[in-house]
Structures are given as C-alpha cells and as structure tokens.
Amino acid sequence: MVNSVKRELARAKIRSWRDMRSGWLVVESDQIAIYRNKLIGGPQKLTQFNTDRLAGIELDEVKNSLRVIFHVPGEEPKDELFVLQGKTQTDTVISTLKDLLNELKARKKQEAEEAERLEKEYQEQLKLTRERFASEIWETSEILWLICKSDYAMVRAVIEANWDEARQQYSRIWQESDRLKQLSQIEITGALENLDGAVTSQNGQEIIQKAGDLIQQLSHRLLHYETNWPKWQNDQEMLAAVSPNYGHLSYFLLFSTVYFEMLLAAQIEDWASVNSTFPLIRSCSTILQSCFNLLFNGSLAATNSAIAKRNLTLLLDAARQIESAVGSVFQARPFKFETPSNQPKE
C-alpha cells in the first residue's frame, strides 16, 4: 500500500445505490465504504470495497451515474452503480478514484518489475547451478567410460600375456577411480585392492575375475546411491528434472561396459558373446540419445552389419565412430531441463 495510514480522501452523498436511496460514499486510502443514513444512531456502514481491487470507473453523464468496477484476480470483474448528489460531489469522487487508480497501476507495475527481476535472478542462478551439476554428471560419465575402457583393455592384455600393458591399464584405473572418488565420493577401493594383488602376482585368471568384480562394485555403488553428493543436497528438487542426471549414470556405465565387452569379445573372436551384447547396446543407445543427447548416427547400423558379417575390421571401424561420438559429446557436455510431462514419447 502506498498510503499505509488510513485516511479519508473524499465523501459524497448517495442518491441511489442498489436498492438504497440515501447514504454516503466514503473513499478512503484503503477502502471505499458505503454508509446508510439512519434516523436514529447516525450512518450505518453497509459494505466496503478494497481499493486494491479498483479496476476502473465510468461516468454516465446523461443519467448522472457513476459505475465503479472492481476486479479480484481470478474472478469475473464486478461493478457497482452509484448516483451521487450533485455534480461537485460526483467530480470529487471521480477525481479521487482516478488518482487511486493511477496509484494502483504504478504500484502494480513496480511490483511486476520487481518480481520479474527476482525471477530473472533466480533463473540465472538456476541455470548456473544446473550447468555446474550437469557438468559434474558429464565428468563422472567420462570417468566411468575411462574406467571401463581400461578395465577391458587390461583383461585383453592379460589374455595376450602382455603384462606391461596390463599394469599400465591397471594404473589408469587407479588414477580414474581416484578422480571419481574426489568428484562424486564413489568408492571402489575394495575392488581395486583385490585387483592389486592379482596384478602384482601376475595371476591372469584372478585379474580377469577381479576386473569383473570391479565393474560389479561400481554398478552397485551407482544403483544403490552408495555415494553422497553433498554439494547438491540442498538443490535436489531443483535438479531433479535436469538431464543427464544421477539416475542416468548407471545407464552410461551399462553402455560403457557392454560396449567394451563387445569390443573385447570381437578382438578375441568370441562372436557368440558379440552377438549377445548388441541388443543391449542398442537399448542403451536409445536411452543415451534421450538422456545424454548422444547421437550415434549410422555407427550402430555399421556395427550391426559388421557383426552379421563377423568382420573385425568393419567392427573396429564402426567402434571408432561410436567412440568419436562419445568423445564429441564429452566435449560439448549438453544438458536439458524438462519436466517429465514435456518429455517426448517415442
């Protein structure tokens, strides 16, 4: 309210209002009150209208009547018809009401501008938060991808008895898992320690088993949210509809695992396993397209064709295309925000 102290601004005698023939219209800073004249006891207040609801005035000079329009947000506008005593009183009331109307408009405009500014600030902050959040999800995805890549490369090196390469890949897994721990508090130290003994003793069989355990443990951490994201604890609601999200990470891990599984199986010419992995790659790719905006274009069709022909060269070409798509999306780190109802239906 502009005028916080209640004060009378104008007064006019009513000759007609609804079915009342004699009374008073009193315009105050916060209300327009209507009084009826009583023979005994003085004027009696019949009703009042909040000046905040004042929406307009219309003067009918022929009938000498004044129509005052009130509007409550969310309701139909209502009007009240007054016939006031004499032109002077009518003009005074009209002038006062016009002032009130102008004041009201100015106030509403100011409030709208303020609200808009606050909303803009909020949206800006929201955008920054979502960007930071999405960036973190992307970084985690990239680490998961690299861990899977090294895990399977290590297994391949073990199968080929290339111990230098196996140790190198194992060291990369350590580095990436360390990054993962710092970034997302995802802890796979147990699995790594088990792997450590096997790598040191060059026990190939055990290394392969433990490499499988490592992926299993990683997936368990993600699936059961055995991680805390303290930075985002307060913004969980705000970030729920950001895509990619926490919940999507396990799908990224699944895609990474099954992709490198397919690659390894092909490299060791285990075509039965290659065949069995492709449907899962296809399902994951649909999810990754939707949640991570990861576009595979023709690489999946090329992969399928190479598998059908059991052609390792073609398969490796297609795999390069897939890895290039993944590399590009890691660079771009796209994200979107949408409520579930806005999501496209396939």
Partner: peptide
C-alpha cells in the same frame, strides 16, 4: 510414459560380470 527401453540394470550388470568370469580361464 516416455517410451524409453526398460532395463533391469542389476540383472544386466550381473550378466556382464558372468561373461567376464567365464573368460577368466583365458588368463
């Protein structure tokens, strides 16, 4: 609602881990 594939993640990861174990003898 959204048309995305429904995957049983735990079962899929378990199956992939089993593939790896089956391969252990290659080591």
């Amino acid at each position: 609602v959204c048309g995305l594939p429904l995957l049983d993640l735990e079962a899929e990861f378990a199956s992939l881990a089993k593939n790896m174990v089956n391969r252990a003898e290659m080591g």
